[in-house]
Design a protein around this nucleic acid. Structure first.
Lengths: 222, 222
DNA sequence: CTCGGGGCTGCACTGAGTGCCAGATAGCCG
DNA sequence: CGGCTATCTGGCACTCAGTGCAGCCCCGAG
């Protein structure tokens, strides 16, 4: 039933556009009652993202099942890879949907709210792990945002390639980048002790005052 | 006219809730025709964010007017401060709206699409400045996402305080944090030369392999 | 005074989403 | 086999957001 509705909807969306297709069109093509559509999909937009609800549940379960001693940043990166895997499971479907959401503002808005829920899930997990730290919530939000942005960047470039590029490699590269930016917030030092590796990086061209601030920030940590 | 509609709308929204208020209610209270509402606001949601369109235009103008030799990361941070200033100009209005959007999913979704447009503006500017660099687009997206997340984190904590905290100080602190994470992508070295300051930072607890990768990345830059 | 244009209004219409009830279907028990 | 219930489905009527259209008023130009 769900599958029949999704199939009918996408046929019509691709054929004559999203806004030119009414829910009545979909249900008559699928041969079911109009009321049943809204039983399976709370809104017309939901039929375009039929598996995100399940994926979000998978992600929260994955995060909830994290061992205590894993690097939380690496863990949220792995959580993001879960989403990519969902997209990669049906490349054709994902590419079609990409072209649809690219040109329909309403769908773009809906997608944003979906992405936002993923980001909140990551941020909540990170808040739990960075809770006591100074600026823990701020760090959590920043890392979640960066991980999501890296994931989306890789995902979109994969979708733009019509699913031909290597999605996993692209997302690995992008996430490594995000991880490197926040490499300063990894596994907390074993209780009681404090980690002792403190080095400073500023790439070519960084103004000196920034480097100094970095050093101060590193030591002001606790 | 706009102001009358916004005032009437907010009175009703606060009094009996957003979804319990119809557009007809608003226009009868404001004493104008229903059709005029949709002349000023393309949708019911728009009346809740009456000044974002102008603010977005201000931000794009601000970015377009950037001198060539400014640090692009600092520039987008300043652009974000523009948005905060808009919120801070009408603290009461902002706080009321915050409580409204917090509990109405439709408004939250709308807000996300507004925030997304700000983020796109920042990312586009950064892409222009980081264009040639390796992974320029990826860096641009990451920095934009982090800056927006930092701004939102500070903004929300200010809104939760009912406008009593110091918004500017909070956002400065949050943005400095975001800036420090990406301090490695500042003003490009003067044409022809290459900067020579290369140091490495890993805060306490960072695994060594990550530090090594940072060093490699720093030198693989060009 | 007349004419033309811009803003305002009312009206009628489409389409999304909801509540309600009736019919079908499947499974379970006697 | 018959009946009973729970769940799924279909149809109907309704609300409300959003749009196109046509008329209206007001105001300035000639």
């Amino acid at each position: 039933m769900r599958e029949a509705l999704v199939a009918a909807a996408f046929r019509l969306f691709l054929e004559r556009g999203y806004e030119q297709t009414t829910v009545d069109d979909i249900v008559t093509l699928a041969g079911v009652g109009r009321r049943s559509f809204f039983r399976y999909f709370p809104s017309k937009e939901d039929v375009v993202f039929p598996d995100h609800e399940r994926c979000l549940a998978d992600m929260t379960a994955f995060l909830a099942a994290s061992p205590e001693d894993t690097d939380p940043v690496a863990r949220v990166c792995d959580a993001a890879r879960l989403v990519l895997r969902m997209y990669a499971e049906n490349p054709d479907f994902s590419v079609q949907r990409y072209h649809l959401t690219k040109k329909v503002p309403g769908l773009r808005a809906y997608e944003l709210s979906v992405v936002w829920r993923y980001e909140r899930a990551l941020a909540e997990y990170l808040r739990g792990r960075l809770g006591g730290r100074p600026d823990g919530a701020l760090r959590a939000d920043l890392i979640a945002a960066a991980v999501v942005a890296a994931h989306n960047n890789a995902l979109r470039s994969w979708l733009r390639s019509d699913g031909r590029d290597d999605a996993a490699a692209a997302v690995d590269h992008a996430l490594e980048y995000a991880q490197s930016a926040f490499g300063s917030v990894p596994v907390p030092p074993p209780a009681g002790e404090r980690g002792d590796v403190v080095v400073v990086l500023a790439r070519r061209g960084a103004p000196l005052w920034q480097v100094v601030r970095e050093v101060e920030a590193a030591f002001a940590d606790d």
